[in-house]
Design a protein around this nucleic acid. Structure first.
Lengths: 241, 241
DNA sequence: CGGCCACGGTGACGCGCGTCACGCACAGTT
DNA sequence: AACTGTGCGTGACGCGCGTCACCGTGGCCG
């Protein structure tokens, strides 16, 4: 697992159990419910760079990611873009639009190729209406999505400096994406500086400069794309709260 | 209605029908559901400055606002605070925490005194489990809440200047809180400059300066707390789509 | 009435970070 | 080996806006 398998292979591996992957999300459902659910989902694989949906489209339904990673971003009219979240295997995208019926608010672009299950809107809504516990589960998923948006607001609005935002970002990223084995101070940065900049609302150059500043202050060490937090308390203070 | 009634009176007026106010939110439920729902809600009035809950508390349940207005805000460790949204009559607060079980993420402070119905967490969750359509409705409410958080992220992250954020804010506020009668260009600013600053992530002084700049450029006119958008297209451009 | 406090308005200052402009390293393609 | 594209590192510049400091006003209190 530690060596990089070619993508094609990984997809096949990951998706041997893929048709049932919804169980991971909707696992507390009675078997009959899962049965019904898998009857209305269809699976497909997506190459890197593909768009599951783009900002402004009428909502077609939800995607449950089996493998790969999907970037959710929003763009301004001036070409500036910002990343809201990176969804990974087991997560769901397109949920708010599907529930509300309003156009998708973000663009979902495949970052690492993989497979996803699609459930069309109408069927999904009807299913939820019939299955109270599934609807409740969906409400929980929505609060997760809300939560990361909320964190983003806090980070953008309450930080006094770009350094604070980057510090927060690293700490949160370390919690969410443990690089390898349980070490919570070690993480693998699968994002470019540009993308990090878009996540924390800063410019690419600032991110670069901050990274070298952090290194100089011995807050972090980095080799290639793997990063180690060597002074977590200081980083926490820098993040402010 | 155009004259300001004293608060006490307004509360009494608004709440004559208040015990059934959930109908406004959960109106598509069958009568039996509404019956059950009103059995587990309790009503109370809150003075100005009261806290429905504060950041970090374990979630007790949800509040459905009958009358008055409630400010939802978050504070950083350095004392900086920012406003996430202002909830008004008919809206629900405390929902994400109640659903997820995580501590309340924000602080809810009463801005204008009023009445609210409270539903304790355990009962609420059980109710949702039993009533699929209510759970679906809750999911819709959550997407509303998500939506304003999302707009906030866009505004904070994608705007190139404070002027842009203020312009966006005014346009959105005009849509949501039509001052009086249907005129979508007329709105009543019930917030202080300080509060507006906290909503758009800027300093109080900047807001003051921007307002006088907007006036000078004939984008808006203001008399007391009522504001008229006199050049909506220009404001829209300034906001940057 | 006089005191207090919340709110709004304004000037001066300065620094953080966005922007522009470059140069370098590395990977893939022909 | 040249060509191209993509991501990183770094210097210089400048201005937007946060911060500090102060004042005027109007409402509400005793």
């Amino acid at each position: 697992m530690s060596m990089q398998a070619p993508y094609g292979l990984r997809i096949i591996e990951d998706c041997l159990s893929c048709p049932l992957r919804e169980e991971r999300i909707f696992c507390d459902l009675p078997p009959a419910g899962i049965q019904k659910l898998s009857a209305i989902t269809s699976s497909a694989t997506y190459p890197k760079g593909a768009f599951l949906f783009v900002e402004g489209q009428p909502p077609r339904g939800v995607f449950i990611i089996c493998s790969g990673r999907v970037k959710l971003s929003a763009a301004s009219s001036e070409g500036k873009t910002m990343i809201l979240r990176i969804a990974e295997a087991g997560e769901i995208v397109g949920l708010p639009g599907t529930i509300s019926g309003e156009p998708y608010e973000a663009t979902a672009e495949v970052l690492e190729p993989g497979q996803a299950n699609f459930i069309p809107r109408e069927l999904f809504l009807r299913f939820l209406k019939d299955h109270g516990d599934a609807a409740l589960k969906v409400a929980q998923l929505l609060t997760n999505i809300y939560h990361v948006a909320y964190q983003e607001v806090r980070s953008l609005g309450l930080s006094r400096s770009a350094a604070a935002k980057l510090a927060k970002f690293l700490l949160e990223w370390a919690g969410h994406h443990p690089g390898s084995q349980q070490d919570e101070n070690r993480l693998t940065l699968t994002l470019t500086h540009e993308e990090i900049a878009q996540m924390i609302g800063a410019s690419r150059e600032t991110v670069t400069r901050l990274f070298s500043e952090f290194k100089k202050k011995k807050l972090v060490q980095m080799k290639g794309s793997s990063l180690v937090i060597s002074n977590r308390p200081a980083l926490k203070i820098l993040g402010g709260a």
